[in-house]
Design a binder for these strands. Structure first.
Length: 423
RNA sequence: GGAGGGAUGCCUGAGUGGCCGAAAGGAACAGUUUGCUAAACUGUCGUACUGGCAACGGUACCGAGGGUUCGAAUCCCUCUUCCUCCGCCA
């Protein structure tokens, strides 16, 4: 959520940046400015009336103490009518704040300076490409055939237990997945991230904090009796650890990592693009979250991007890095890099990581601030990134490392898996 | 699930209707003293909204939301949460 003060003082700039995003309702900006004006007027009137009421109450107390009962009664009578006004004004204030809030939450984050304008994924900018497509033997298979050939992931069995999109990992498939999780967590720890284990269910306040609520509740599984949601990403619980927190400046940057399963309802389409591991309702992911000084957030974005790339290099995968255009970025992001690995058998790029700088968009809602020595408290910046999302990495490994007589395990993983091939 | 007791500022903790945005101590920060460290002393020391060029004001907040009252940290109701005991249980 953007800060009202900023919108009020930078109207032109806000409109210009929203243009980069191809935002469809620029009129919202002026509406917000108008609603804010109403809110402030109401606030001022209410404050003035309250000041009178407070002064009167104080006077009554003094009069009572000095025994001047009649004078006290007179003031009491006066205040009664004042109270009515205060009540209606504070109701008006609530309404005004609600209207302002409702409008504010509809405004997406402003794209950073480097973000290319654009509306569709075709307008994303390819920042770099690393490696070359793996050379496969003639009978190369897509991963959903490899998984059944070697009996390592069972989609039908998951359907029996739950439904489509909930695979069962078996034997070496399960161990490969666990190996990757451990590899990612160990590497993150080496990079200075603190490993966390967090709840997999979140309440409404947490959903609001990171921007899943309002409006995007449809993407999450909802336990209605308890009003709790299954997490769509570890970003939600890990970032919300710092909701309503004022950090000391020297505590920055805060670097946390967490492995969690993630749950996404997303209305399923069918076909090759969502086949096999390409899109699931439940999947595993190791996530990185940083809370940083506002001056550092773009530097840290580059650092996180480089780190994610190093993982892909270690796994020997052919990948590319995209800087998303304004229209393809998430609602809360100011700048996003997507990492995509080449799926040799499917002949297409698969997104395996998304690294974003949210600037103060989340921290404004979270009330996550920091305070320097003698300095003013101000909003921190947050960033996060997947490092990495498991299923498509597994898919890419299976497809790119397949040979006629088995799948070779990338060397860095062997000490985690305990075996060097699946056959 | 049952019974009881709590929730106050960075921390500990006082405060049962007005003089309380809140005592006291500690921590932290700044300064004085000091050969250095320590100690001592002095000062600063919540957040947000809002008025004002500023100086300096106003308002709200003592877990959250309602209520009683001229006036609520203090009384009443609901909720959340923590602790103790009992029951159940991975």
């Amino acid at each position: 959520m953007l800060q009202v003060n900023y919108i009020r003082e930078n109207r032109e700039k806000v409109l210009e940046r929203l243009g980069v995003r191809n935002f469809k309702q620029p009129e919202l900006v002026d509406e917000i400015i108008k609603l804010d004006e109403e809110r402030r007027q109401t606030q001022t009137s209410l404050d003035n009336l309250s000041a009178i009421a407070n002064a009167n109450a104080k006077q009554v107390g003094e009069l009572m103490r000095s025994g001047k009962k009649e004078e006290a009664e007179a003031i009491k009578a006066e205040t009664t009518s004042n109270k009515e006004h205060i009540k209606t004004l504070s109701e008006q204030l609530n309404v005004a704040e609600q209207h302002l809030y409702n409008a504010l939450v509809q405004l997406p984050n402003l794209p950073g300076e480097l973000v290319p304008a654009g509306a569709t994924p075709e307008e994303n900018e390819v920042v770099l490409t690393h490696g070359a497509p793996a050379e496969l033997h003639g009978k190369a298979l897509p991963h959903w055939e490899l998984t059944s050939k070697y009996d390592i992931i069972d989609f039908e069995l998951g359907t029996k237990i739950t439904g489509a999109g909930f695979p069962v990992y078996k034997g070496k498939g399960a161990r490969l997945q666990r190996a990757l999780i451990n590899f990612f967590l160990d590497r993150a720890t080496e990079q200075g991230y603190r490993e966390m284990q967090v709840p997999l269910m979140i309440n409404e306040a947490s959903g609001f904090g990171t921007g899943q609520l309002p409006d995007k509740e449809g993407q999450m599984y909802h336990s209605t009796v308890d009003n709790l949601f299954l997490i769509p990403t570890a970003e939600v619980p890990v970032t919300n650890l710092y909701r309503d927190v004022i950090l000391k400046e020297e505590e920055l940057p805060v670097k946390n990592t967490a492995y969690t399963p993630c749950f996404r309802r997303e209305a399923g389409s069918y076909g090759a693009h969502v086949r096999g591991l390409n899109r699931l309702h439940q999947f595993d992911k190791v996530e990185l979250v940083q809370v940083v000084h506002p001056d550092k957030s773009y530097e840290v974005l580059e650092e996180m991007s480089a780190y994610v790339q190093s993982l892909l290099k270690d796994l020997g995968l052919h990948f590319r890095v995209l800087r998303l255009c304004g229209g393809d970025m998430g609602f809360t992001s100011a700048m996003t890099y997507d990492m995509e690995v080449w799926s040799a058998a499917q002949q297409r790029w698969l997104e395996v990581s998304s690294v974003s700088n949210f600037e103060s968009f989340q921290t404004n809602r979270l009330k996550l601030r920091f305070k320097g020595n003698g300095g003013k408290t101000q909003l921190a910046h947050t960033l996060n990134g997947s490092a990495l999302a498991l299923p498509r990495i597994v898919a890419a490994i299976l497809e790119n490392y397949q040979t006629e007589d088995g799948i070779i395990i990338p060397e860095v993983l062997v000490k985690y898996t305990g075996f060097d091939r699946i056959d």
